[in-house]
Amino acid sequence: MSETIAAPDVTLPPTQAELPYDDGIPMESQRHKMQMDLLIDTFVTWLAEREDGYASGNMFVYFSLAQLKNQDFRGPDFFAVLGVPKVERRSWVVWEEGKGPDVVIELLSPKTAATDKNEKKLIYQNQMRVSDYFWFDPFNPDDWAGFSLEHGIYQPITPNAENQLVSQAVGLALLRWQGSYKGVDTTWLRWATLTGELLPTAEEKERQKADEAQQQAQQAQQRAERAESQLQQTAKNLLQSGMTVEQVANITGLSNSEIAALDI
């Protein structure tokens, strides 16, 4: 008589569909929300040229099952991951994705600064193993810093000659930019290429395309006007050489009336 062996009782870790993805806590201020949007928008625009990658902010990042019991800190204000599919997520679940964020940015406030600079920094270093970690205070732009994970320990990132903090993990730089974003003129933290070119927002990119199209149209019009002027000069020279209007029209393609209107 055969004996039925019961299947082992295996508890699978929860998926992103089963995990909480909203803690109901708003951003610290409108400036913080706008700064987060600026970082995400420009990075996503850069990702549009790639086949991989993900960026988001104020979203839970689940890196251990123990964290489900603690629930002791919110998700990063900004994080980005390369080498992953471009799909929507409710939250970032490391055991589903196979990796954690490559870069994290926290936006400081009087309430969060101590936690961001100490507790969270240690979590990103020791538990999440985030390659590059940065912080920035939207109301005090001088309070910014970056750290790169070397042999398991965060080492300060020294600003380069252009006063940029470079993230080797994503091959981009962060810089402080004085300008207007969504009607607010202040110093913003922005992504840039390693040559210092700002990553544009989607709106800025569309404006650039429109400006380039207008410039190309103007250049085409100028070329057409120069060609027309040269053709008219050729027609004048031919008339002055003794050719008839009909002969000049056959050579230049201008109409008889156009040739007759020339000031000779």
Rank of each mutant, 00 (worst) to 15 (best):
M36Y: 00
W95I: 07
T112D: 09
Q30S: 09
V61M: 02
N118P: 07
G75I: 11
A55W: 10
K86T: 01
W92S: 09
G100C: 06
R50I: 02
I40Y: 05
L68I: 15
R90Y: 04
A48W: 01
D37S: 12
W46I: 08
G53R: 00
D52A: 09
L47I: 00
L82Q: 05
F63K: 07
I40Q: 08
K111M: 12
L82T: 07
V84T: 07
G75T: 11
Q71K: 11
G75E: 04
P101D: 10
E97S: 10
L39P: 00
I105L: 06
R74T: 03
L38D: 01
G100R: 03
S56I: 08
N118V: 13
L65S: 14
V93T: 13
M34A: 14
R50F: 11
G100N: 07
L107N: 01
L38K: 00
N58P: 07
A114D: 12
E88V: 04
F43D: 11
K33E: 13
W92M: 12
P110Q: 09
E49P: 06
A55Y: 10
M36K: 09
T112S: 15
V44Q: 15
K111Q: 13
E88Y: 00
D37W: 05
E97G: 02
A66K: 14
T45D: 10
R89G: 04
L39C: 06
F43E: 13
L68Y: 02
Q71E: 10
V104Y: 02
L47H: 05
M34D: 11
E97F: 04
S56V: 04
N58E: 14
L108S: 02
D52Y: 14
F60Q: 05
R89I: 03
A66C: 13
E49K: 15
S109T: 00
D52E: 15
W95L: 10
R50Q: 14
D102E: 06
I40N: 04
S56F: 11
V81F: 01
V87I: 05
R74V: 02
M59G: 02
P110N: 12
D77I: 05
Q71L: 14
L108C: 06
A80M: 05
W92Q: 08
E49H: 11
L68C: 09
D116A: 01
I105N: 03
G98V: 09
L38H: 01
Q67I: 00
K111N: 13
P101N: 12
V84E: 04
D41Y: 04
G98H: 04
H32G: 00
G57P: 10
F73T: 15
K99M: 13
V87A: 06
Q67N: 10
L39D: 03
V84W: 08
L38E: 01
G100Q: 04
V87K: 01
I40S: 03
V94F: 06
E96W: 01
